[in-house]
């Protein structure tokens, strides 16, 4: 197992804030819109530096999505910021008609996704957003794993023509990807080459997959670990090549099983290469109040859950 280390933990939302600030300096067409969550989204640095390109919309997310769509007419590249729940479910029809169907170059940037939002509870802990967004034709869906990758993804999506959903979160997580990485939309990242099981993880579950890989290595199991930061378009080639080799699969994500990364990979494999597959995800349930760590444990999203899923998947091989 390749060794991964980190010197600090940071929140992915801060990676977004840093990326947005850099874009402000390098791309005059980038504008930012926020629905009364500037501090939470770490958009305050952009607001301070580029006040003429920052638009405080107030608590009116539907209006924000429409304004963002309209601003593309004239060549602006709008980045909208609010919590993942209010970035998707609350404004689905606005995104569907005014952004996705209209093919507008809007970047929907969503923080506080999933259970790790913590104490605010289920009203704010959306676990359906990846599914909602990936079902929209033409929508690119990205869920980076740490601060550096979120910053790189934020910068990369400005250069991509078309609507993008960028998902990140609130808790601090290990920063282990390179600060100077080139983020390639739709390109999976190989973290550890292995032969016994393929673990495909996204977002906050990527570091947990690395921890799981170490635990599996201690049991003599050589796991292949791949970071799927782009849910859509899925890197089908990377997934199929890995599964061809390992013959069994685990997916891991902070999302419902329905509609998430596991769902995408299950569909791909069912069509092209049926193999045993186990999913580490929330099983048709809302979240609740608690600390992020408590919630991840209660809902079965820890490294140990990935280990158990890997063992189950390996046990099903060839049967």
């Amino acid at each position: 197992m390749k060794k991964y280390t980190f010197t600090e933990k940071k929140d992915t939302r801060s990676g977004f804030g840093a990326g947005l600030l850099e874009l402000g300096k390098t791309n005059p067409n980038v504008v930012a819109l926020c629905a009364d969550l500037t501090g939470s989204l770490k958009m305050d640095a952009f607001e301070k530096e580029f006040p003429e390109r920052f638009f405080q919309i107030g608590i009116a997310e539907a209006n924000m999505m429409g304004i963002a769509a309209g601003m593309t007419i004239g060549g602006k590249i709008p980045f909208t910021g609010t919590f993942a729940n209010f970035s998707t479910g609350r404004v689905y029809d606005q995104i569907r008609q005014s952004i996705a169907y209209s093919g507008k170059n809007v970047k929907i940037c969503a923080s506080h996704a999933g259970l790790t939002l913590g104490e605010d509870g289920a009203t704010h802990q959306i676990l359906e957003d990846l599914g909602l967004m990936k079902m929209l034709p033409g929508m690119t869906v990205i869920n980076p794993c740490d601060y550096n990758q979120t910053k790189a993804a934020t910068i990369a999506i400005a250069a991509h023509q078309g609507p993008v959903y960028l998902r990140f979160g609130r808790p601090t997580v290990p920063v282990f990807t390179p600060a100077d990485q080139k983020f390639e939309i739709g390109k999976a990242v190989m973290l550890n080459e292995g032969t016994d099981v393929s673990i495909f993880a996204t977002g906050h579950l990527v570091w947990k997959a690395i921890e799981a890989g170490e635990m599996l290595a201690a049991k003599g199991i050589n796991a292949e670990i791949i970071n799927i930061h782009t849910i859509k378009p899925l890197d089908s080639k990377a997934v199929l090549e890995s599964v061809m080799k390992t013959k069994c699969v685990v997916t891991a994500e902070e999302h419902q099983m329905n509609g998430g990364l596991g769902d995408s990979i299950a569909q791909l494999l069912a069509l092209k290469l049926p193999m045993p597959l186990e999913m580490v995800a929330v099983n048709d349930s809302f979240g609740e109040s608690g600390t992020p760590d408590e919630l991840m444990t209660k809902y079965g999203l820890d490294a140990i859950n990935i280990v158990d899923a890997a063992l189950r998947s390996i046990a099903r091989k060839g049967k």
Binding site: N63, M65, G66, I67, G70, M71, Q97, Y101
Partner: peptide
């Protein structure tokens, strides 16, 4: 819809209530 590339159309509409926001966005862009 813009989806089929019809000249003169800059935004899809049909689901009601969205066009004023869009118009504001275009006005801010101007």
């Amino acid at each position: 819809t813009t989806h089929e590339g019809l000249p003169g159309v800059r935004m899809s509409s049909g689901s009601l209530g969205q066009g004023m926001s869009v118009a504001i966005g275009a006005a801010l862009s101007k």
